[in-house]
């Protein structure tokens, strides 16, 4: 495997990590706010808070890791994406800032403050939408080169059906992933009311997820034929992904083994995500930038990979400890431990 392929694989893995933990996080914030609106907070808030509290900061790191790594391994992305994405990414940053800080304000400083809960709930649901614009732009067709400088064509971007399909997919998938995960979590906590409600949400959001996902493939046929053809070449990955999707929905429907349902869900998204990514190869930005011509020098690449391996040696045991103490700790999940913050 060449260094650039190794680099992009590492980055994709972290992006995938962010998509999953971020989706759980953002969706949970949204469901929490929604339950306040419909007066069902007594059912949901408890379970959501127990999950979110110890991990919210970790979620954010996945994103930072991804974009710092991106600029590290592929410095030219700073030039192309940095120049063109000022507005969408700034908006994403602002949403991220509101979401992160108001979450902390509500949890640690002003428990049950409705305004704060709404703020982070809403910011969380808009975030995937604004971040997903990056994926749209990477398909090409929205960036013109003017005097050697890349310029984003907002008109084309916001009138393209592809943009909106991706936006809808990002929101639907966020809520779907989050609801499936929280169903399992609530079930583990033995909270029957919350499990039922979240299971309902999961089933509701499964359909829009799969429809928009299919819609995007269809959009790509006319927008980026190259990418579309490569996607077809990997049809088996998507077929498998679809099968796992059906498996998840089936388990939810039958109220059977929610833990397995979560794993199938992760498998479904992993297959679709890596399939999409592999089909994107070698482009980082159609048609301007490939992973080969944007790659950093071999000395830096080697240093980054060594740092990455050493870092993982530190992180994996720590993450394991975090999960063992909270997520996979029966007493904690069921609220038996007296683990109030600070």
């Amino acid at each position: 495997m060449s260094l650039e392929v190794l680099g992009i694989t590492v980055l994709m893995t972290f992006l995938f990590g962010y998509i999953i933990v971020g989706a759980i996080d953002f969706g949970a914030g949204f469901f929490n706010a929604y339950s306040l609106l419909t007066g069902k907070e007594h059912i949901l808030t408890n379970v959501i808070q127990r999950y979110l509290s110890p991990v919210w900061e970790v979620t954010n790191v996945f994103l930072v890791f991804f974009f710092v790594g991106m600029v590290g391994f592929f410095p030219s992305t700073a030039f192309y994406y940095g120049t063109t994405m000022l507005v969408p990414l700034s908006i994403a940053l602002i949403l991220l800032a509101i979401r992160g800080s108001y979450y902390a304000f509500e949890t640690y400083g002003a428990s049950g403050h409705k305004g704060y809960s709404f703020m982070y709930g809403m910011a969380g649901i808009l975030l995937p939408a604004s971040l997903s614009i990056v994926l749209t732009i990477s398909e090409g067709g929205f960036i013109d080169m003017v005097n050697g400088q890349p310029v984003l064509d907002y008109g084309a971007l916001f009138t393209s059906p592809l943009t909106w399909s991706i936006v809808f997919l990002s929101i639907a998938a966020t809520l779907y992933i989050s609801a499936v995960f929280l169903t399992w979590y609530a079930d583990k906590a033995g909270d029957r009311d919350a499990t039922e409600l979240l299971r309902k949400y999961a089933l509701i959001w499964s359909l829009p997820t799969i429809i928009t996902a299919g819609g995007i493939v269809w959009e790509l046929r006319s927008h980026n034929a190259d990418h579309y053809n490569q996607l077809l070449g990997l049809w088996w990955m998507f077929a498998l992904s679809g099968a796992l999707f059906i498996g998840t929905v089936y388990l939810l429907w039958k109220r059977h083994n929610y833990g397995l349902a979560v794993w199938l869900l992760i498998g479904q998204f992993a297959l679709a995500f890596y399939g999409y990514g592999i089909a994107h190869y070698p482009y980082l930005l159609y048609p301007h930038l490939t992973i080969h011509d944007s790659f950093t020098n071999p000395a830096m690449a080697t240093a980054l990979i060594i740092a990455f391996i050493l870092g993982l040696g530190l992180l994996i045991p720590s993450l394991y400890l975090l999960l063992r103490l909270f997520l996979f700790n029966k007493d904690y999940v069921k609220g038996r431990k007296k683990d109030e913050h600070a």
């Binding site: 970790v58 790191v61 710092v68 600029v71 590290g72 830096m300 980054l304 530190l314 992180l315 400890l321």
Partner: peptide
Amino acid sequence: ALPLFMETFAFFFEAI
């Protein structure tokens, strides 16, 4: 890029 990258690890470690 190396220290920038290492910073995210330090931050990760702290956050966990």
